[in-house]
Amino acid sequence: MENQEERDTNKKMWIVTPGEKVPKRPRYGDTNSGEAYFIKTPIGYVATHLGVIKKTGRGLDLIPYKNVYTPRKGDYVVGVVTAYAPNGWIVDIGASTKAFLAAQELIRRQGGERRFDPKTYDLTQQFSIGDLIGAVIYDINAQSHAILSLNPEKTTVSPRHIGKLRGYFVIKVHTTKIPRIIGKKGSMIKMIKENIDGDIVIGQNGVILFKGEYEKYLLLKRIINTIISRTFAPGLTGKIASMLGTTLEDGENDTS
């Protein structure tokens, strides 16, 4: 056991399974995903997920193989309306709990001043069951339900990607793959967007939408499948660049 630990401390990356001890106190909270993948036990800190541990300047990070998507404040998500509530819509965002979108949010977005009145407001006229909606999570309530907003105050999401989304191709991936698709400081997605004409939308809940030519959609799907199947491989940006028929500038290729 000691030898294993010693060997691990000398490595920069290694694979862990749940229950395996990590050599030192891991970094908490501020990981890429904002999740803690370690717990303290009587034997020390152990990993709780299957994944790859990366030693960075700031401590240990675990990139999980899979993870249960937990909605967080500020996440841009794409969901499907699944039911009507008395004062809004129930939206499936692929998390373990359903999300809620209040009708008041839509009234505010449409510039209305009045308050929501269930007697006069027809919810079915706005969103029907099965509609695709883009929204930002602005709160998580005590029952762990995500409360959605159509009027986010601080967001980088384009306004046209908020509200009802029509005419998009949908690609569903696991949420742990989203950081890899976006890449370091957005390098991967920037390159994809530059080389594929069309509108690409990425939801933090693992939904990728594309509007454009069907051939471009097939190329995008092929690229995403490559990223998924080689998530932990180094030099992935270079491979994607060759698929897109472009070249990388010096230092652009990530080796992680």
């Binding site: 749940p18 036990t41 152990v46 899979k66 249960v68």
Partner: peptide
């Protein structure tokens, strides 16, 4: 369970 990404204390 580990493959599903469910957090485990140990196998």
């Amino acid at each position: 369970l580990a493959e599903a990404g469910i957090p485990l204390r140990d196998m």
